[in-house]
């Protein structure tokens, strides 16, 4: 039986820039940073309160199993925001939105009340899209 996810990949256009975005803006922590064969780089970060889950910031350049054609196709999809989508949880969507917005993070949807709770949608520096919702949806009215 599968027990848990330990690693997952987010494809990014520039690993240095993505590391800065994920650590300085989203508050992730750098976990592992190792140069690999052929000019590659194994770079992982962990969510602030989930140190056991490593998110690998994978390059979209020809490397490992990626030939030039595949890498270019992946890069194009990421640039267009058509590839990555994942969900983040936080304690308070409005506060997180205000903070990230002040730090220059691009949101495609500000905090919006939905029947299932309040959500916002942000993009990382490469174009990957993430929803933001609350760990425990609060009861009560909001503006």
């Amino acid at each position: 039986m599968i027990a848990r996810i330990t690693h997952l990949s987010v494809y990014v256009l520039d690993q240095d820039r993505a590391l800065d975005f994920y650590t300085q803006k989203l508050g992730f922590k750098k976990h592992t940073d190792i140069p690999m064969h052929g000019g590659g780089r194994w770079l992982t970060v962990t969510p602030p309160e989930q140190p056991e889950l490593e998110v690998a910031l994978m390059p979209t350049s020809p490397w490992g199993p990626w030939n030039a054609e595949n890498a270019a196709a992946m890069r194009k999809l990421v640039e267009q925001g058509m590839f990555g989508f994942a969900a983040f949880k936080c304690k308070d969507v409005r506060a997180t939105y205000e903070e990230l917005h002040a730090k220059g993070v691009e949101f495609t949807m500000p905090p919006t009340q939905q029947p299932f709770g309040i959500i916002a949608v942000l993009k990382d520096d490469s174009g990957n899209t993430f929803s933001l919702s609350e760990l425990e949806p609060k009861k009560g009215k909001r503006k």
Binding site: H7, T32, I34, M36, G38, W42, A56, W63, G64, P65
Partner: peptide, 13 residues
């Protein structure tokens, strides 16, 4: 030792 085996293999290491 710091890269999961499956990733290392997939990435050609």
């Amino acid at each position: 030792e710091h890269i999961p085996n499956c990733y290392a293999m997939w990435l050609g290491w």
